[in-house]
Nucleic acid binder design. Structure first.
Length: 950
RNA sequence: GGGCCUAUAGCUCAGUUGGCUAGAGCGCACCCCUGAUAAGGGUGAGGUCACAGGUUCGAGUCCUGUUAGGCCCA
């Protein structure tokens, strides 16, 4: 008897064994070896989107990095050269926020504030860099534990000087095309720290504030009455002599000096109301509520009208007479100042339905201002005091003191309808715990409509054309998503007022004007590419500009300022601009590759990296950085709800409970377009399914213990097409083409499914069950047995290569066991390519055989239910072979396929009880040749021969 | 509120351009094997395809709306 034997264990023990594989690959330099081996092969240029270097990796990273690794490994095994450089996004607010938080906690913040500004930036930056590098190390370790293959020795980091220089190259190119401009934008502003704040730096706390109902007197009474359908005759009749007012409500009276317009909702109904003698306009639904606030006694609704018909009506500002100065670089329509405009965000929840609009002091207000060409007026200075343009009674005063001052003024002048103190949740600066304000500041923007050097087209136009016509999207809906976002996106605000990032290389003259051109940016970029962005904070303007030649700068407007008179700006670039230049900072810089084949990221990146990369590359190169994008959805919990951060296992737990291969096996089973549910139970299921595949491979290996492919192998092309071994290899060929095709389409789930089904059905249930008898009972060297072993050897080799992209450890373990290379550190399936097939002849009549097998099994099931005939080896089956096809096949193969002792052919299917016949003690088959042999055993001829008995 | 997407057996998913008695695996139930054995094999029960309309000879598949959920905006 030749029973199975193998050192490939049933229990995978991935938690111990995977790190060993990892070490072995590292020691053998697998990544470098693969580069060498694939040198000169067609390249597949795949580019890693840099994850943010903060904290332990989570399931989203596991998904993303696994999918990327499937791509890298599968393309590589198709024979392509797939260099893959992992990257990290190292700059930005979350790190700075975290680091500064630590400084505050350690009581170092006050000390820091005493330093000169350069030194403050440098101190924070130093701490940020240390922190970021630590995070990169942590995440890289976890990603490697996930068994992803990449150039971890040489990752790209956005804080590398060469990378930073490359980012500025892109910026310079945009400057060159006059696509970069400065304009106002409202931001959260901390008066205490005199700095802009990001959302993450806000803390909402309760605060008592003053809210006021204010009447803005209409400029043209007749027009207002007309808008409500009241003509002059009707006015006389109803004794409406008063000039109507527009009633607004605000919780920030200090922004009233900056009032530019009043917004109404075009579709809502507004009422003209007589309130204690005066006539006011407010939302119909809010009349009662507002009247109650003012303790009005006599309230009468005179008429109603849609908000849309009020648009354009003008009013007098209660205390500002001259049209305020307009915002930087923005066109102004003076006719619209102090008039009613329409806006969607106006609600009938509270207030009056007429919204005080100060474009310099609110996000919505700003949008409205830009749309309506209103002045973006911000009379508040960085220290929270009013500037010179305001009325003298508040000029120079703090906005917080101004609230009551303004209330008094309004009351005195008869504009105040009502006022009250109230509590509300209000954003505060997380560091100083003081309330923040909205304030317009100057920011850098990239114009998405301005003409580029690429045929004069705008970035948006170019991006849309590429997305619509040239880019490949997997899944297809990525196109409409990207297109939708490109169509509606505003100009790109690329500046931030922070320390941790790449500075915008802008200098300022003594009069405050900006001195920056493409050549200036390039000169600074050269310094930074060499010394890093720290140089911006440590070097003088003159030194930074040492490589700048004013004489050859076509963009220089006027004389070159003396470098000593220039000061540096402290704006840094949006991190999305940095990562959006990774095609330049990583790929072009290293390998000259451009454009990339594909980017693969979560669907949130349609707004993020996909878009920033597209705009940056189109701007500089005129070509998209990638030919296509693959998108995946997000993890949700088992009920389909958003995954909470605190819930569930950490990735470290998953590694130590299941191992990377099981996790990857699970990832490969996911329909990754759309949301993916995660639950502890799913990893258990994946583990079960993994074990099934593993056991199949183990069984293959365990029957190859005495097989030496060089000595015993044969060429499948010589095998009879009717042999079961030829059949199984043709099935493998179908599998391979399906799996490789799926890999090409990034359809990993299909590949997973196909391989799982192949192991289960084709191998475990049909083929391997059938060939057991010959493997165990034929003589060791019988031609039939060796041929089956050859098929099994090829199947193991082929299957381990097909599995390798998904299960790098297990596939390599199997492959190395197969070729007997357990001691050879360099042998690896990952250096191999996929086996598409082995040239076995195909015979279409196998379909009939498999149908006959099903019919036979069904007949046996039926027979079993009607008798005690339980063991298939106690039965013989007569198969219906009406067209004589089955007779062409080996009857032993047919019997083994059914697991019975004998088959015959007849007009219909039937089952015979063979328990009267003698049973071979060795093979347990009922056979007419069984008789007592020389050693006293009951054996069939075949088994006797195998034992050398007569 | 807007854009894009998802909704098929208890669970994970297939279902090309509308034509099926709606499929597969897991799980479950029953049975076999005991020479892949903390394995292997066979059989079976599970669905008004989220809901409501509409187009059509015919709709899981197309259209409209609703509900629930996700990503990104506002």
């Amino acid at each position: 008897m030749n029973l199975p034997k193998t050192s490939f264990p049933m229990k995978a023990n991935l938690v111990q064994n995977e790190p060993a594989s990892q070490k072995r690959w590292a020691k053998a330099g697998l990544y470098e070896q693969l580069r060498k081996a694939r040198k000169g092969s067609p390249k597949f240029v795949f580019h890693d989107g840099p994850p943010y270097a903060n904290g332990s990796i989570h399931l989203g990273h596991v998904l993303n990095k696994s999918l990327k690794d499937f791509v890298v490994r599968s393309r590589s095994m198709m024979g392509m050269d797939v260099p893959f450089v992992p990257g990290w996004d190292c700059h930005g607010l979350p790190i700075e926020h975290r680091v500064v938080g630590d400084l505050v906690a350690k009581g170092k913040a006050d000390k820091l504030a005493e330093l000169p500004v350069e030194a403050q930036h440098s101190a924070i930056r130093k701490a940020c860099a240390e922190y970021a590098l630590k995070q990169v190390k942590l995440q890289a370790g976890q990603m490697q534990r996930l068994l992803t293959m990449a150039d971890y020795e040489n990752p790209y980091l956005t804080l590398h000087p060469s990378y930073e220089g490359a980012v500025l190259e892109v910026l310079a190119s945009l400057f060159e095309q006059d696509l970069v401009y400065r304009a106002l934008k409202p931001v959260h502003w901390s008066v205490a720290n005199q700095t802009a704040l990001a959302d993450a730096e806000l803390e909402y706390m309760d605060r008592e504030d003053l809210s006021v109902y204010v009447e803005f007197e209409a400029m043209d009474a007749v027009a207002v009455y007309a808008a409500f359908g009241i003509d002059e005759a009707a006015r006389d009749e109803r004794e409406l002599g008063a000039t109507p007012s527009f009633m607004i409500w605000t919780t920030t009276p200090w922004t009233l000096p900056a009032n530019i317009a009043v917004a109404v909702h075009a579709e809502s109904s507004y009422a003209l109301v007589r309130v204690d003698g005066s006539v006011v306009v407010l939302a119909e639904d809010l009349v009662k509520q507002v009247a109650a606030k003012g303790k009005a006694e006599d309230v009468e609704v005179l008429a109603t009208a849609k908000g849309g018909s009020l648009v354009g009506l003008r009013y007098k500002h209660p205390f500002v007479n001259e049209v305020p100065p307009c915002g930087l670089g923005q066109a102004v329509d003076e006719a619209k100042v102090w008039s009613l405009v329409a806006a969607d965000y106006v609600t009938m929840e509270d207030g009056t339905g007429l919204v005080h609009t100060a474009p310099g002091h609110g996000q919505d207000d700003f949008q409205t201002g830009v749309r309506e060409k209103l002045p973006v007026y911000c009379p508040v200075r960085g220290d929270g005091t009013y500037d010179e343009s305001t009325p003298d009674w508040i000029r120079g005063k703090s906005i917080w003191d101004a609230n009551s001052e303004i209330e008094r003024w309004l009351a005195k002048s008869g504009h105040l309808f009502s006022s009250e103190r109230f509590m509300h949740s209000y954003p505060h600066d997380w560091r100083s715990k003081t309330p923040v304000i909205f304030r317009c500041t100057e920011q850098w923007f990239v114009a998405v409509n301005g003409p580029t050097k690429h045929g004069g087209k705008g970035l948006r136009e170019m991006a849309l054309a590429e997305a619509k016509e040239n880019l490949a999207f997997v899944p297809a809906w990525g196109k409409s998503r990207l297109v939708g976002m490109l169509e509606s996106r505003p100009d790109w605000c690329i500046s931030r007022q922070r320390s941790w990032g790449v500075p915008v290389p802008a200098f300022y003259r003594e009069d405050g004007s900006v001195f920056t051109t493409a050549a200036v940016v390039r000169a600074v970029a050269a310094v930074i590419a060499d010394k890093g962005t720290d140089a911006w904070y440590t070097m003088s303007a003159a030194d930074l500009l040492s490589g700048y030649d004013a004489a050859s700068d076509p963009q220089l407007d006027g004389p070159m300022p003396e470098p000593q008179t220039l000061s540096k700006g402290w704006d840094i670039l949006d991190v999305w601009f940095e990562s959006g230049a990774s095609w330049n900072g990583c790929m072009r810089a290293r390998t000259g590759e451009f454009p990339m084949e594909v980017y693969l990221e979560g669907s949130d990146q349609h707004r993020g990296w996909f878009q920033s990369s597209l705009l940056c590359s189109l701007g500089m190169m005129g070509t998209p950085a990638y030919k296509g994008i693959v998108t995946h959805g997000f993890m949700v919990d088992k009920d389909g709800k958003k995954l909470s951060k605190s819930k569930g296992d950490t990735v470290e737990d998953l590694f130590s409970n299941y191992g990377a291969d099981v996790i990857r096996w699970w990832v490969s089973s996911l329909a990754y377009d759309g949301d993916m549910k995660v639950d502890e139970a799913f990893f258990k299921v994946a583990g079960e399914s993994y074990r099934k595949v593993r056991n199949t491979v183990r069984f293959l290996l365990s029957n190859l213990d005495d097989y030496d492919h060089d000595a015993h192998g044969s060429s499948p092309s010589d095998w009879p097409a009717t042999s079961i071994d030829a059949w199984v290899l043709t099935r493998y060929e179908k599998l391979a083409s399906k799996v490789i095709g799926a890999y090409e389409r990034y359809a990993f789930r299909e590949a997973h499914q196909a391989m799982y089904d192949f192991c289960n059905e084709t191998l475990s249930s049909v083929y391997l069950a059938a060939v057991k008898d010959r493997l165990y009972c034929d003589s060791l060297d019988s031609e039939r047995r060796r041929r089956t072993q050859c098929a099994m050897h090829l199947l193991t080799r082929g299957l381990s290569s097909l599995l390798a992209p998904l299960l790098p450890h297990t596939a390599d373990e199997a492959y190395r066991s197969l070729i007997g290379a357990e001691q050879d550190a360099e042998a690896s399936v990952h250096l191999a390519t996929f086996d598409a097939g082995f040239g076995a002849p195909q015979d279409d009549r196998w379909n009939a055989v498999l149908k006959a097998r099903d019919a036979g099994l069904a007949a046996m099931e039926l027979a079993r239910s009607k008798s005690d005939l339980d063991n298939p080896l106690d039965t013989g089956v007569t198969l219906a072979d009406t067209d004589g096809i089955l007779a062409a096949f080996d009857s032993t193969d047919l019997a083994d396929l059914l697991g019975v002792s004998r088959v015959g052919f007849g007009p219909t299917v039937s089952v015979q009880d063979l328990r009267d016949e003698p049973r071979c003690e060795r093979s347990w088959k009922r056979d007419s040749t069984v008789r007592e042999r020389s050693d006293g055993g009951l054996l069939s001829d075949r088994d006797a021969a195998a034992l050398g008995l007569a």
